[in-house]
């Protein structure tokens, strides 16, 4: 894979000298926490490896990563701790991998959540993306496997996608290290607050549910003025999610 062309940034001296330092498993003294989420088999672990320089095992079957893997990198004087979450299709059920992913985004309060999606299966992948955007408002979409999409003649309008989702979208082919420098820059911009996201909120919901969610969400906001995901908590309460009910009672959300 070394014979493949790199992006200009990666060949640029300044970039390499001042910018990126892969820190492997050394996750001490970090400035920002970055979560890596996404459907199974979208190349999350490959992105993780590209960022940290680690060689976490990757495999072409859904559910490869069942535990959290952690690594770190440094970019322009800031240290980022990267947490690779298990790949899941959704965050609505209660299997162990989905709980690990959801709880980290919810309680681990990452500074940035990078959602890795397969450009070839965007529609199916958006299911998870839209759920994550209800939980956190600091996210980056990494549109991975662009090389395969190109081969499959799929063209994606990046700007329109970014506008609809309300978060930055970075096209990438992590296997060939394409798009990784841009991804790092975007992560850093979101973490530092240079980019402010206005994440998409789920719209196509029946009126009565929307109304119920609004009432609950307002009450939750009153109680916890600083949380970004009162709407999502309302969803979970309506679902009867005991873990969230317990979390509310114990005040974890404060």
């Amino acid at each position: 894979m070394d014979v493949l062309p790199h992006s200009n940034c990666e060949n640029c001296e300044h970039f390499n000298a001042d910018g990126l330092k892969k820190l492997g498993v050394d996750t001490t003294d970090f400035d920002y926490i970055v979560a890596l989420a996404g459907n199974p088999n979208t190349g999350k672990s490959t992105v993780f490896n590209a960022l940290t320089g680690l060689r976490q095992h990757t495999g072409n079957w859904p559910g490869k990563t069942v535990t959290r893997a952690e690594g770190a990198f440094q970019y322009n004087e800031k240290k980022y701790k990267l947490v690779d979450l298990p790949g899941t299709y959704s965050l609505l059920s209660t299997s162990e991998d989905e709980e690990v992913a959801r709880n980290f985004i919810l309680f681990g309060k990452p500074d940035v959540t990078v959602i890795v999606v397969d450009a070839n299966r965007l529609e199916r992948n958006l299911n998870l993306v839209l759920q994550i955007l209800e939980i956190t408002d600091k996210a980056v979409l990494c549109l991975n496997l662009m090389d395969e999409a190109k081969r499959n003649n799929i063209e994606i309008n990046i700007r329109s996608l970014a506008k609809d989702l309300g978060i930055p979208v970075v096209p990438a082919s992590a296997r060939y290290k394409e798009g990784i420098p841009e991804l790092i820059q975007t992560i850093s911009d979101v973490a530092s607050g240079k980019i402010i996201c206005k994440p998409h909120r789920i719209k196509n919901i029946p009126k009565d549910i929307e109304e119920a969610v609004r009432i609950l969400s307002d009450k939750i906001k009153k109680e916890f003025p600083n949380i970004p995901n009162s709407r999502w908590i309302a969803f979970r309460l309506l679902e009867g999610d005991n873990q969230i009910i317990e979390a509310l009672e114990s005040g974890v959300f404060v």
């Binding site: 529609e123 299911n127 839209l130 799929i154 609809d164 998409h200 196509n204 919901i205 029946p206 309506l238």
Partner: peptide, 29 residues
């Protein structure tokens, strides 16, 4: 709101996804 909440929400998410993809993807395939 009844038992259909979970299904309604899931359908809502899929409908949103379909709209977004409609705008963003040209599949020449």
């Amino acid at each position: 709101i009844g038992d259909d909440f979970h299904d309604n929400l899931a359908e809502g998410i899929y409908a949103d996804a379909a709209e977004i993809v409609e705008d963003a993807i040209i599949d020449k395939n």
